[in-house]
């Protein structure tokens, strides 16, 4: 597989910027029908996703040793959703931490995210439960 390195197409530095540029790269690859590996490296570990084609959907594989930040994933999901492309993708995930991040993004953005976890297909749907931001705040002057 040909490697597609995000570092070759962006000079920006934050995880969110990497997510934005990764999403744009994915969209461009999709339009050109060339799906390769998209890799974003940042100093906070490796934000890395691999894109696979399938017969009916596209897989974004987040490997078990990858530690993508929430802002990186959020930006990719936002950008794909914004272009009405998110439903064509499924995120293959391997650990709880990434699942929790996707769950929070789903809740915060009120969008459904297709996943494949332990080879089981499911969809993370926005929860009806109140957001953590709506917890009880005590008012007290300091």
């Amino acid at each position: 597989m040909k490697m597609f390195k995000l570092s070759n197409i962006t000079k920006r530095t934050t995880s969110r910027d990497h997510g934005s540029d990764a999403a744009l790269a994915i969209i461009e690859l999709l339009h050109n029908h060339i799906i390769e590996k998209v890799e974003a490296s940042s100093i906070d570990g490796v934000n890395s996703v691999t894109i696979h084609t399938n017969t009916d959907e596209l897989m974004i594989d987040i490997s078990d040793d990858s530690r993508p930040s929430a802002s990186f994933l959020d930006e990719i999901i936002y950008r794909l959703d914004d272009k009405n492309l998110l439903h064509r993708f499924r995120f293959r995930i391997h650990n709880d931490r990434v699942f929790q991040k996707l769950e929070k993004i789903s809740n915060d953005r009120v969008i459904s995210i297709n996943i494949n976890w332990n080879d089981k297909r499911k969809t993370i749907k926005p929860s009806d439960k109140p957001s953590k931001a709506k917890h009880k705040i005590i008012h007290r002057d300091l």
Binding site: A70, S71, Y78, R79, D82, K104, D108, A133
Partner: peptide, 19 residues
Amino acid sequence: PKVTSKNEARGMGLSELHD
């Protein structure tokens, strides 16, 4: 989430930090 003076893609950082 999504409360920001910028475009809709933003406004997630403080929310993530908070949670």
